[in-house]
């Protein structure tokens, strides 16, 4: 048994991240992480006639790129774990319908990429698979259409609102390889802090992020300084500050090495993205682009990635429900101590 403490697990085998790939939209291209993406689109349609088709194409091409970079034949991939924000996970299932790989469509709102990495690692560790693909995507326009308002509606965005990332990230995990490795996971519980404001997702998810982070430290005996960097998925500027405060009240100072993918992906001042980026594609593309690049360059040796999700939809918010959050922590290290 690999379980430690309440809800954390050390992998008993080296789970290699063989390759990663990410494709993002034009706004992300103008952002500070531009240099780390595999491909940036010139427009949100990408030659398709609907946002949904464009998003499917993005996830399809991202998965194909990741598989091509891993140099594994796609017939040797045992499973793909993929998800997105659209109803019934259509971007993933339509994007991957021709992939010919056994498919698990997953939903964890914006934490989907963390969920995919967690499930992928468990599947390999449990000897159910040799190679798996983990992917997630989101699209600004399809998300606005489904969750908010038509694009052409002349409304103002609240200062705490976030900008859904157009993009997708995919990672190929394998039994064999030379790292970096997924070494530990802490799947998160659903935590509801009672926040009802759909324009303040960061605050709604910060409680879940705190819960998972505390569990991870307690279970594994690690502390924040164990990691070169800790990343949450899309708490944004508001949620990031809240998480720092919340952790401080529990006696952990994470200020020095903590950042948020949603904060990193856009330039708040130049790009008018208010509280920062969000969406499944946010943590997925930042991890598959920026963070894995830093591993390659040797700048990071130990990273805790913790994609965060707000588990709600427009029906629940119209019915006056509060917004439950979730966060899954995945520890990624350049060397594998349990080898």
């Amino acid at each position: 048994m690999k379980k430690v403490g309440n809800q954390s697990y050390f992998m008993s085998k080296p789970i290699n991240i063989l390759s990663t790939a990410c494709i993002v939209g034009p706004k992300e291209k103008d952002g500070p992480l531009n240099a780390y993406f595999d491909q940036c689109l010139e427009d949100e349609f990408w030659g398709e006639n609907s946002w949904e088709k464009a998003e499917s194409k993005i996830i399809k091409e991202t998965v194909n790129t990741a598989i091509a970079k891993s140099k594994i034949a796609s017939s040797s991939i045992d499973f793909v774990f993929a998800g997105d924000l659209l109803n019934q996970c259509i971007s993933s299932s339509f994007g991957l319908r021709e992939s010919n790989i056994p498919f698990f469509g997953i939903f964890g709102a914006c934490s989907t990429f963390g969920e995919a990495l967690t499930l992928g690692s468990m599947t390999i560790d449990g000897d159910f698979a040799t190679n798996v693909v983990c992917a997630a995507s989101s699209h600004f326009c399809s998300a606005e259409k489904q969750f908010r308002f038509p694009l052409e509606l002349g409304n103002q965005r609240a200062p705490s609102s976030q900008w859904t990332v157009t993009g997708s990230g995919a990672a190929v995990l394998s039994k064999d390889g030379e790292g970096p490795y997924v070494t530990a996971i802490t799947p998160g519980k659903i935590v509801d802090m009672g926040i009802k404001d759909a324009n303040n997702m960061g605050a709604a998810m910060a409680g879940a992020a705190q819960d998972t982070l505390l569990c991870h430290f307690k279970d594994t005996g690690r502390n924040p300084s164990y990691y070169d960097a800790i990343f949450t998925g899309d708490l944004g500027h508001v949620g990031k500050d809240i998480l720092i405060d919340l952790m401080e009240t529990k006696g952990y100072n994470i200020k020095a090495n903590y950042n948020d993918c949603g904060v990193l992906i856009f330039d708040k001042e130049q790009q008018d993205t208010h509280s920062g980026g969000s969406g499944c594609g946010c943590s997925a593309s930042v991890f598959c682009g920026y963070i894995s690049h830093m591993f390659k360059e040797g700048k990071y040796k130990k990273v805790l990635l913790m994609p965060t999700g707000a588990l709600m939809n427009s029906t629940t918010s119209q019915q006056g429900e509060s917004i439950p959050g979730i966060a899954h922590a995945v520890a990624i290290e350049a060397t594998c101590p349990n080898l």
């Binding site: 926040i195 605050a203 500050d241």
Partner: peptide
């Protein structure tokens, strides 16, 4: 938490 978030959220 709601009171704290109100303070933290930019107007």
């Amino acid at each position: 938490y709601a009171t704290y978030v109100d303070q933290k959220t930019p107007n």
